[in-house]
Amino acid sequence: MEAFLQHLLNGLLLGGTYALLGIGLTLIFGLMNVVNFAHGEFYTLGAYLTFAAASLLRVNFVLAIAVAILGGSLLGALCERVLLRPLRGESIDTTMLVMIGLWIATQNGELLAWGGVAKSIPHPFPTAPIVIGPVSVAPLRLFVLAAVLVLIAGSHVLIHRTRLGVAMRATFQDRETAALMGIDVGGIHTLTFAFGSGLAAAAGALLGPIFLVYPSMGDLAALKAFSVVILGGLGNFAGATLGGVILGIAEELGAGYVSSGYRDAVGFVIIILVLLVRPSGLFARAGRVG
C-alpha cells in the first residue's frame, strides 16, 4: 500500500511534466498542423538558457526561467518566419521534414556550443524531501507542478477568453474567412508558433533543474509530448493535461507492477488502445480533423 501511494504520487508528478510538454505542442501540432519534430529542441533551448542565466550569469531562478521563455518564443517566431512561412501551402510532410532538419541541426549545434557533458541547473529549493505519511516528494517538484497548473490555466484563458485567442482559432479553422474578417493571418501563424515554442522552453526551464541538461534531452521529451497531445485530442489544453496525467500514472504503475523494461511500452499500448476505441483522442471535440 505504501508503495502504491508513492507510485501514484510519482505518476501524478510525472504526469504534470508530461502535460507541460504537451500543451506547447498541442498548439503547434494540434492547431497549426505542423508535425513539429523540433519541439524537443525548444525544450532543450529553454533548459540551456536557464542554465546560462542561473549558473553563468547568476540571475534569480525565476528570472532565469522568464529569460528562457522569452528566448524560446523569439526563436520560435524566427523559425516560423524563416522556415515555415515560405512553405505555407506545401504538404504536411514537407514542413515535417524541415522541422526534422531543424531538429538535427540544432541538436548538433548545441553539442558544438555546450559540449556533451550534462549540466545541472542550480535552484533555490531545499533538496531534502517533504515527507507526508508514507510518501515523500521533493519541494522542487511541487513548485514545478504548481507552475505547470498556472501555465496551463493561463494558456487556456488566452486561447478561449481573449480576442487574440479567438483570432488564433479562427485562423486555423478557416483561413480565408479569417483573412476576410481583417485578421492578420501571417502574424497569427508567427504568434502561435512563438507561443507554443515558448511553452516548450518553459517546460525545459522547469524540468531542467529536476533532471539534467544535455544536447539530446529533447528527444524523449518530444516523443512524450506527441503522445500526450494525441491522447488528449489535438488543440485541447484540458485534454493534454489529463492525457499527461494518465500517461504518467500508467507508466509509473506499469514499471512498478509489470516490468520496468516495458515501462515505455505501457504508454504506447495505451495510445494504440485509446485510438482504437476513440479514433480522435480521449477528449476531442467532435468535428476536429488532424
Binding site: 508503495a3 509509473e252 504503475l253 512498478g256 520496468s260 523494461g261 515501462r263 515505455d264
Partner: peptide, 20 residues
Amino acid sequence: VEFMDQAATDMNAQLTKIRG
C-alpha cells in the same frame, strides 16, 4: 532487479520498487 531505458530520466518507479 530493475532496468531503465538508455534515455530515461525519471526512475522513480524503479526506485520505489527497490525501496520496498
